[in-house]
């Protein structure tokens, strides 16, 4: 039998099933995705509340940042608040709605419930049941704010349980890897929301009104207070710098890449700064790209284009992770090609 070489002794409990590793990776990604989506919808509500009364409310940018605008237009048409929130929160047929994400997280968790602590499973299960009740209108009236906060807090609770009840062994590292890849991707999209969010006129750029929006954006990733300690005054450049290049704030892209790298290297036992497989190479290159980056370079080259580049790299990283660790390696490539293809159901 073939077994790839790994540095011995770095992690206990080897021989994790590929399918199980894949499920843990996607379980945490979907939870992170649901949480971030709740944050994005909530911040947009705030942005709109802060808009001058005579300007149209904007919900279209939210759909644009998901990249699923075509699907939205087919199914809903108008970018009204009601349509957009239903699409993003409660649409069971849209695979990236909060409801669908929580369902996918739960199904992944269900398929590995003998692996994860029962507290984690119960937390995912009750979170999904809560969401389902909300969507079915069976919850006692809650304000939208309470609902989003509840989702976010329940996701936090899940992450806390994972931190403190699950052994930090191989499976845990796959979970963290998924979580940080997803988080980096979503931060890049939250930042990008300003690119899509139309200001009433160019004169608004740099105005107090513009700054209010940047502050709301920071709040959506729970970054406002930490940002204040670092920079005090709001400026779009500093916000971008904080959310992209900060190495200490856990919702900064750079931080996420470092954390993802630590888990990735823990899995294979490769020393930091080297690579032994394709995911390590892609992540290492992306990280080192940010090691010496200055925010002026990023802004001058176009923030939107830069964020787009990050998203593509993260996508490549996820695909390479699948190929390296989860793809069921066929003994006879012709006979088993079908089985491999059918196992990669989960997508970005």
């Amino acid at each position: 039998m073939t077994r790839r070489k790994r540095t011995k002794g770095h992690l206990q409990g080897v021989h994790m099933l590929s399918r199980v590793a894949n499920s843990i990776y996607w379980m945490t990604r979907y939870i992170e995705r649901a949480e971030n989506l709740a944050r994005i919808v909530e911040v947009n509500r705030h942005l709109n509340l802060d808009f001058p009364g005579d300007v149209d409310r904007q919900w279209e940018p939210l759909v644009w940042i998901t990249g699923d605008n075509k699907l939205f237009e087919e199914r809903y048409g108008d970018f009204t608040e009601e349509n957009v929130t239903r699409f993003l929160m409660a649409d069971p047929e849209y695979p990236n709605s909060i409801l669908s994400c929580l369902q996918a997280a739960r199904e992944n968790a269900r398929s590995i419930r003998e692996i994860i602590p029962s507290e984690m499973w119960e937390q995912i299960n009750t979170l999904y049941l809560y969401m389902k009740k909300m969507v079915d209108g069976k919850l006692a009236a809650e304000s939208p704010y309470e609902s989003y906060q509840n989702i976010i807090m329940k996701c936090h609770l899940f992450n806390g349980l994972m931190e403190s009840t699950m052994s930090h062994s191989e499976g845990w590292h796959f979970g963290k890897l998924g979580q940080y890849i997803e988080r980096a991707d979503k931060i890049s999209r939250v930042l990008d929301i300003k690119y899509f969010f139309l200001l009433p006129s160019p004169t608004f750029v740099g105005s107090p009104f513009d700054n209010i929006q940047w502050a709301a954006l920071l709040k959506s990733v729970s970054a406002f207070e930490m940002y204040r300690k670092r920079w005090r005054r709001i400026s779009h450049k500093h916000v971008a710098e904080f959310l992209i290049l900060d190495r200490e704030f856990p919702r900064a892209i750079y931080y996420c890449l470092i954390a993802a790298g630590q888990s990735l290297h823990a899995i294979a036992g490769t020393p930091q700064g080297q690579f032994a497989n394709e995911p390590e190479r892609i992540l290492g290159r992306l990280r080192s790209d940010l090691d010496y980056k200055k925010i002026d370079e990023i802004v001058d080259g176009g923030l939107h284009e830069f964020l787009d580049h990050i998203q593509i790299q993260l996508n490549d990283l996820s695909n390479a992770t699948f190929e390296e660790f989860f793809a069921i390696r066929p003994v006879d490539p012709h006979k088993n090609a079908q089985r491999v293809a059918s196992s990669q159901q989960q997508s970005n």
Binding site: M1, T2, R4, M16, L17, A21, E170
Partner: peptide, 10 residues
């Protein structure tokens, strides 16, 4: 054998 993240195990 089962397929694991490190290869096959009996």
């Amino acid at each position: 054998a089962m397929r694991t993240t490190t290869g096959f195990q009996r």
